[in-house]
Amino acid sequence: MRFSELGSQPLVDAATRAWSRCLGNLTASRTALPLDFRSQSGDTNLELMLAMQALTQEVTQRLIATQMGRLLLLHAGAVSHPVTGQSLVFVAPGGTGKTTLGCVLGRTYGYLTDETVGIDDDGRIWPYPKPLSLRMPGGGPKREASPDDLGLAGAHRAPTVKKVIVLSRPPSHSGPPVIQELDTLDAVQQMLPETSSLGKLPRPLATLAALAEQGGPVLHCSYAEADDLVALAGELIGTVP
């Protein structure tokens, strides 16, 4: 990464902290195209936030490009039960509260991702515990926060899909969540817009239908507040002692 105005070190330091869950002890290295961030405003903090946000977007795009045709990729968040690994996948378009829900459920369940869930043919989830992209009051760039700094639990070693819910958060909704079971065709139809490069899989729709039928019907959930879904998560993937 090259950060033209400050030099790269502040960005490397911030990225190392924010991406702590994704760093490993690699025995091999790989060269990628450099990412350039150039200061526009002269506001160092703002530029650093913009660079961190751009880094998250770039890494996610490269991840999707690398895994398309190999994993079923859903625009979704996910958490895993720390003992069983059974996981809840919450599929939703942007702005529906995946990150907030990941923060709330991640206090109890292992944080897998707040944005892109990759699932293999065996129903195993390959965690992508990226920084959580937090909206700031008043708008502006999102803050890329380390799951460590937010106190989120670690991912199970081998998380598997237990239940899929499709989230919606209509402004008119108030009160407790409204849950509806989806038949397979409805579930596939509602998940399709939230897939990435689905057509690159060998049997894309059959793969999505198999996910929809795994662990019983997919649920559609209209809700208002993330805290309202804690009890539902306990019902679906088990409570944590």
């Binding site: 065709l185 596939v188 894309p204 729709l205 239908a209």
Partner: peptide, 16 residues
């Protein structure tokens, strides 16, 4: 089409 899913209630077609 890229793929075609047929179930009891209808079908879904996936295009590029």
């Amino acid at each position: 089409s890229v793929d075609h899913l047929v179930l009891a209630g209808g079908s879904i077609l996936l295009f590029d």
